[in-house]
Amino acid sequence: MSTLTARHPGFREALAFEWAKFASLRSTRWTTVTIGLVTVVGAVFVGLSGSLQPDDTVLGGSLTLSVVSLMIAGVVGALTICGEYASGTLTSTLAAVPRRGRVLLAKAVLLAGLLYGLSLVACTAAYLLGGAILEDGTYAQGEPMPALLGIAGLFAVVGVLGLAIGVLVRHSAGAVTAVIAVMLLPSLFGPLFGDMQRWVAGATPTAALEKLTQTADASPEAVGSLGAWPSLALVAAYTVVLLALATQRLRRRDA
């Protein structure tokens, strides 16, 4: 008498499955491409507009609209899972890969890898274009390295943050609203928290982005007094916490 043992798909198979789904959805593909387009087109627009302040850097000016791209990255993360909840395809996903933590990890790794690569190329291109358009010697160049690596890492983190929020909220509109709130509200309300402003305002992905891009708008009053890399580390830390909570919720609730 023989015993048949069901074999659960491994992580590589789960990752390949997630890539196939991601690549097959036109809306997700184009939304992701928009991240790069907004970043690069924004550098050209700002460079030609003559709107930079004397204390701006080429890096900061060229990546002015990257804050919009960063929000789109969070939205992509949220829609990656909320789209499956809405269409009911998550049930098929979990039938193919029963280990729910593995499913969410595969989604997170895929999003992080795609967004890191895309944003690194787009932000580097934007910086080079901005430097070519802006008049030599008018603005300081800034320090693109390792800042560009940190910016790309921030895009990856925000994509995973959006994914975690999507699992917790489950509805597209609510998840997108929550992502935008996390991105903007702490910076807006930070001054109301007195001495805690450096933590509240500095906890937002947008604050970390402004510090990494070395924009003249990244004043302690606006984005907190934490440094660029501590802000990035703080965003990454609470993203990991939210992803862990999302994993527990995915395991305990029906698809």
Results as ranks from 00 to 15, higher is better:
M1D: 13
T3A: 14
L4S: 14
A6Y: 15
F11Q: 00
F11Y: 04
A14T: 00
E18K: 06
E18N: 11
A20L: 14
F22I: 09
S24G: 15
L25E: 15
R26H: 12
R29L: 15
R29H: 06
I35H: 01
T39I: 03
V40S: 05
G42V: 06
G42P: 05
G42D: 05
A43C: 01
G50L: 04
G50I: 06
S51N: 14
L52E: 11
Q53C: 06
P54N: 01
D55M: 15
D56F: 12
G60I: 04
G61P: 06
A73I: 11
A73Y: 01
V75R: 08
A78Y: 06
T80F: 13
T80C: 09
C82W: 04
G83V: 08
G83L: 10
Y85K: 04
A86I: 09
T89C: 03
T89L: 13
L90K: 12
T91W: 12
V97H: 00
R99C: 03
V103E: 00
L104A: 04
L104I: 04
K107G: 07
A108N: 03
L111N: 09
Y116T: 12
L118H: 03
T124H: 00
Y127M: 01
L128E: 10
L128P: 05
L129E: 09
G131P: 09
L134K: 11
E135V: 14
T138I: 15
Y139M: 02
A140M: 09
P146A: 02
A147T: 09
L148F: 01
G153T: 08
A156R: 05
V158C: 00
G162V: 03
G162E: 07
G166Y: 00
V167W: 07
H171E: 15
S172F: 03
A175R: 09
A178K: 03
A178F: 08
V182Y: 04
M183R: 02
P186G: 02
S187A: 15
S187W: 02
S187N: 15
L188F: 13
F189D: 01
G190R: 02
P191V: 06
D195Q: 14
R198Q: 15
R198H: 15
R198C: 08
A203K: 03
T204G: 01
T204M: 12
T206E: 11
T206R: 11
T206L: 14
L209D: 10
E210I: 12
A218K: 08
S219L: 15
P220M: 09
P220T: 07
V223H: 10
S225H: 11
S225M: 07
A228T: 06
W229E: 07
W229V: 13
S231E: 04
A233T: 10
L234H: 07
L234F: 13
V235M: 03
V235D: 00
A236W: 02
A237L: 12
V241M: 07
L242G: 04
L245A: 14
L245T: 05
Q248C: 15
R249F: 07
L250A: 05
